[in-house]
Write a protein that binds this DNA or RNA. Structure first.
Lengths: 240, 240
DNA sequence: GCCACCTTTCAGAGAAGCCTGAAAGGTGAA
DNA sequence: TTCACCTTTCAGGCTTCTCTGAAAGGTGGC
């Protein structure tokens, strides 16, 4: 079945093997809570300064700085000094895909998932004026996969037809002073969801069509019609 | 932009946070050469016994057994005892996606990639009678993404039209005694490529159409026509 | 029952990783 | 220039991980 003998990959376990070392080194960088969270913020929400990250994560600057230095030598982040600030950014596109795949797989575990504190099923929340929660994440994922949105979630992709299927009239979306689209790291699922003017338009369209309904506070619930139509529009999404 | 305050994720760096611990624990399991390679074999090529894996990797049974025990408590693999053999298998589908995302990102680094020893550009190799190398990996990825092949690469998916576009007449494929399709872990890229009768048919179709040509030994080269048409058929593939 | 084989467990030595706290390098504002 | 601020570096001490080698549990064949 393989061109090589069965024992043909004994060198794969050698830490000096180029592919082995590349992948295990990457995994090791992702195996620390601070590095993981910092990378998620940088890869999905964009550049931050060291102090912004340190504030957001609630850790001291030296502690974070050591981790960022490690990420820098690993080639995962880049730094640019402007004045007395150090602006960090994800070095290569595509890191978001890795983080997304990891988060998705980790959540698939029925036990470890974030279903703490008998909370609502978390199918749907809003984040100011756009969808968050599992539904928001599913919308973002479907838009990127279908080419309606670029990988970074910041602009329209080559095939925006899915917006039409979702009930959004792109010609009627007026960003005004705000950004057209942003990728927003979901606070529960650690996966990107759609913010900006487009995010608002999607939520409005879902409310107009009765796919979701307000449920007090930031919560919205999936209606009976939504439970039927949303899984079709968004492959892989299941209410519940 | 976010519903929470800027400092709203200080608890993310707490190792007890459920999502944080799930993802970092997963990354830690992937950060060792033996565990990584064993998981790639189990997730992509299917179940193996402990001694099969130990032979393939060239490590002692206790050493591998310790790592497999760790993977078992982490919930990544399952074991079934039949007689005096222990058959290990990947516990949940979807782990292949994580491994694939990791390998892809690691290879995207222009320096660390497997371009050792002035070898041929490795665009294309064969593995017995089917495509391997970067082209084989690209074919497999496109087939899965388009729904022509199931995630595990073992059977046809819901929308096999891509086979037709590649020049394969599915009605004419006769598996005979061999399997219709298998996922085969590429020896260089650590990513799945298509084996089995379908894999052979794809290679034959590419040769018939002059997209690739034999280049001695296991190598094939992408022809001028292939360089033009393959990137269209397989989004993301670039020759050279 | 006895032996061969596959698998699992265990303890100790060595290596690697991480946090803390203090201090140094640079930049911008007064 | 002096001060305040942001960032980076460094060393000590602690924890965690990994390998090695030997030994124990079980199973199937003779």
């Amino acid at each position: 079945m393989n061109g090589d003998s069965l024992a043909g990959m004994s060198d794969w376990v050698d830490p000096r093997h180029p592919v082995t070392s590349a992948v295990t080194a990457l995994a090791r960088e992702l195996a620390d809570p601070i590095r993981l969270t910092a990378l998620q913020l940088l890869a999905i929400e964009g550049p931050h300064t060291l102090s912004q990250l340190a504030d957001a994560l609630g850790v001291t600057a030296p502690r974070l700085g050591n981790h960022l230095a490690r990420l820098r030598t690993a080639g995962l982040v880049e730094v640019e000094h402007t004045g007395r600030h150090a602006v960090y950014r994800a070095a290569a596109p595509g890191l978001g895909d890795v983080l997304t795949a990891l988060s998705r797989y980790a959540h698939a575990d029925p036990e470890a998932g974030p279903r703490r504190a008998g909370a609502t099923a978390d199918a749907t929340r809003t984040c100011y004026d756009h969808l968050a929660g599992r539904l928001g994440v599913a919308v973002f994922g479907a838009l990127v996969r279908r080419g309606a949105l670029t990988d970074d979630g910041r602009s329209l992709g080559p095939d925006p037809t899915l917006f039409g299927e979702l009930g959004v009239d792109l010609a009627a979306v007026d960003p005004g002073r705000r950004k057209l689209a942003t990728a927003c790291l979901d606070r529960t699922w650690r996966l990107p969801h759609l913010g900006g003017a487009l995010g608002r338009s999607v939520l409005d369209a879902f409310l107009d069509q009765g796919l979701v309904a307000p449920a007090g506070g930031r919560d919205v619930t999936v209606t009976a019609e939504g439970a039927e139509r949303l899984p079709v529009l968004l492959p892989g999404f299941t209410p519940s």
